[in-house]
């Protein structure tokens, strides 16, 4: 698995729980204190060890920790480039939802080795959707839920999100679109400010 995923978890732990939180987790997971290199490959088991260690060391339920991770990926200033890439997914939140199934493909376009969760969107009623998320990491649906929550904020949409548990096809997340233009949302210019 590409270190980018592990690195994202590492940055989330460090930025949320401080360097001490990250160091303690790294020790418990048997990971060096410098952590992961985003562009190198690691064993799948290391990702799991990292998540398990974090829930133990930080005394946080796996579900809420993973949901916070998803929110962090969109909303933390350090990950602005990722937020921007996600915003290319659509002009509004509904548009964004419709292109979610393309996300693994979009990811691979950027990085051929990147394995993102497989997502399927099912329309179950007017403005009601069920997103199915298939991933080797148990609880990935919670990451997706946190990410959707932050993206809805970003677009200024009002949504109801609920994790429906795991089915045979994967974890299911219910999405109810209440208002696609509830707030102004965050600004998005097609080209990033030059640094």
């Amino acid at each position: 698995m590409l270190g980018l995923i592990n690195r994202a978890i590492q940055c989330f732990l460090r930025d949320t729980f401080g360097d001490a939180g990250w160091q303690a987790t790294a020790r418990a997971a048997g990971v060096g204190k410098d952590g992961f290199e985003p562009m190198l490959h690691y064993e799948m088991a290391e990702t799991e060890a990292l998540i398990a260690a974090a829930t133990g060391v930080l005394d946080r339920p796996r579900e809420s920790l993973l949901e916070d991770l998803g929110t962090y990926l969109v909303s933390h200033p350090n990950l602005e480039p990722l937020r921007r890439l996600l915003r290319f997914g659509g002009t509004g939140f509904r548009d964004f939802l419709m292109t979610l199934e393309d996300m693994p493909g979009r990811g691979r376009l950027a990085l051929p080795d990147l394995d993102l969760p497989m997502l399927t969107l099912e329309e179950v009623g007017a403005d009601r959707y069920v997103l199915t998320c298939r991933s080797p990491v148990p609880g990935a649906g919670h990451v997706v839920l946190g990410l959707l929550r932050a993206m809805a904020d970003d677009y200024g949409a009002l949504v109801l999100l609920e994790h429906l548990g795991a089915g045979p096809e994967g974890e299911r997340v219910s999405v109810v679109l209440l208002d696609t233009a509830h707030w102004a949302g965050r600004r998005f210019d097609l080209t990033a400010a030059e640094v």
């Binding site: 980018l4 290199e37 985003p38 562009m39 190198l40 480039p81 990722l82 921007r84 890439l85 290319f88 979009r106 376009l109 950027a110 990085l111 097609l190 080209t191 990033a192």
Partner: peptide, 18 residues
């Protein structure tokens, strides 16, 4: 094209850091 340009720039930046 814009997405790809930005995604590839981000990857290139990561590789430069590495």
């Amino acid at each position: 094209l814009l997405y790809l340009h930005e995604a590839k720039s981000a990857v290139a930046e990561e590789l430069r850091n590495l």
